[in-house]
Design a protein around this nucleic acid. Structure first.
Lengths: 327, 327
DNA sequence: TTGAAAGCGCTAACAT
DNA sequence: ATGTTAGCGCTTTCAA
């Protein structure tokens, strides 16, 4: 590997001069500059990023932790984050956690050892909040309230849950099922949509059955199985609410057992990933503003890295409803 | 930030001793070791990765370049790569290229400046092959023949194209359309499936119309538009072949204009992403072995990084057909 | 068994 | 306008 000293020797100057030419800082005689440039080109020199990083104590890399990248919501999210970070001059490191604490810990370690400048936490929160707090480094939660001091960004899930409920109620549903835990046992902002959904449904005097999501999804089959079990246990269901994957699996199975949608069964999806655009009949879906969420998350984390205090610690972005043919 | 010297001072030893304790190399008296360990814990010390990386001249990071992470095929691929690299002790950096040469160049630069130890090229190949060759660093092509010396891994697309063709022919299709360029203008292994597909179809005396894929996809709408145009230009079509997204868009539009699948129209998809599992009727699909492809790609790149010569420069993995209800 | 010192490749302060 | 030097934080000879 050719170093700055090789270039310096080749050009007959000191290393500092080469550095000056490269950075554009400081004065360099035109003639010297050109000689240096030529040496750089001849030796095909590229400055070593690791040395620079060590000096500046920053890696220029931001990690984004998600439970599973292949999940459409997270792949679209990470995609948007990558775009946004790239525009801000950062590289994106992806970290799958598979809902496992060990992975989370390992990735937190990357922050402490300065491998990354910051972390966007899109993963399940499984650690005690003081473990996050004790970091004292740039961390933000995506849809996760990690601790009081750690800023987070999320969609306005309460409104999302309400919109979904009203949509199904408006269609005249009498037996509603949602995939998600309505007990508020999980403290993530996104779980609130299920609490609100149930509340609104029951306020209208309609029974609402909630199927808790499993802790961990390893494959698509998990969704299919959950939906199959639901249809078995709750055959009279006429309104379903769940994330895109649950909604899609419900739609598919409903059609395959001959139930008419939306006549016999209405479905409202949540998230609005690309998947919903490929289904027939088109799903009615509550869309999270993925791009905007990503943009804000990146703005927050880069501000924190720059040392600026993030003023608004909790940022909720509005959801929207896209009406399809399943309601 | 607390450094190794802080720990050394705190424990009343030299920095080298702390290093020995940390690495487990060399002899350290039990008593000293324990004193050092205690200091490490008390000061909450974590070794700085950047300094280590500089010393060892490696970052422990591998970049994977894809056109667009939100595309289901690439998100599943990168997911599998992340898992595989993680098991091998590497971090994964994602790089979207959006089919643009500038991005590719920028990412190649990361290799030269030692920001990453290697690159898996899952992106469109837009540079001249000597630009890749001149790297002399660990690079492998995923579905891309970058230059003669650069190893690559891909699915056996020729067989894939043949299987798809035979499937549609076997269903009695007389007017077949495929989404993809059958002219072999693009030199990627994956484009071969379209050449073979057309060849097999025409050998059976059936006309085959090929819709060239666009260079760049920015949104899902692009697929929808292409399919809509196809149905308009080629209303008599009774057999369609295309990647999952084309197949899914075709299925949706076919159903929405009242065409019966598979009675009036048969569809064979290519790739086998999760998307295909959510459609009704279930798509018949030629599946790429994504996990195995990722596994092999990672094995190759890590071998190259270790300095081992990759023996088999071209690795083709078998595809499989999953029969659904669209044929 | 341990510490001092020389690097890894770069930048910036300080001389000149 | 340019070179020398002292780090950034770590690891590894080498000497004691």
């Amino acid at each position: 590997m050719v170093t700055i000293h090789d270039v310096a020797r080749h050009a007959g100057v000191g290393a500092a001069t080469v550095s000056r030419v490269l950075s554009g800082n400081g004065y360099v005689k035109l003639e010297t500059r050109e000689r240096v440039m030529q040496s750089i080109r001849q030796l095909n020199y590229t400055p070593n990023e690791m040395a620079r990083n060590l000096y500046y104590r920053k890696s220029g890399i931001i990690a984004v932790m998600v439970p599973m990248l292949s999940h459409p919501f997270f792949s679209e999210l990470v995609n948007a984050i990558e775009v946004s970070l790239c525009n801000k001059g950062y590289q994106t490191m992806v970290c799958n956690t598979f809902y496992e604490k060990n992975y989370e810990l390992r990735y937190l370690e990357m922050l402490r050892c300065q491998r990354v400048d910051g972390i966007i936490f899109g993963a399940h929160m499984s650690l005690a909040s003081d473990q996050y707090r004790s970091l004292h480094r740039p961390v933000i939660g995506f849809d996760r309230r990690l601790s009081e001091e750690i800023p987070f960004v999320a969609a306005d899930h309460e409104t999302g849950g309400r919109l979904a409920a009203l949509e199904l109620i408006g269609c005249g549903c009498r037996n509603i099922v949602q995939f998600g835990d309505a007990e508020d046992r999980v403290a993530t902002p996104s779980s609130r949509r299920h609490t609100v959904f149930r509340k609104v449904v029951e306020e209208h005097g309609i029974p609402c059955h909630s199927y808790s999501e499993r802790q961990k999804y390893s494959s698509i089959d998990d969704y299919d199985e959950a939906v199959a079990r639901m249809f078995e246990e709750y055959p009279e269901v006429d309104g379903i609410f769940g994330t895109d994957l649950y909604a899609a699996a419900s739609l598919r199975q409903a059609l395959s057992i001959g139930r008419r949608v939306p006549e016999d069964l209405r479905i409202v999806a949540y998230d609005g990933t690309h998947l919903t655009r490929f289904l027939y009949p088109e799903l009615t879906v509550i869309c999270q503003p993925i791009n905007e969420l990503a943009e804000e998350a990146c703005r927050m984390i880069t501000d924190m890295i720059k040392g600026e205090e993030v003023l608004k610690k909790e940022l909720l972005l509005p959801v929207s409803i896209r009406k399809g043919r399943t309601t």
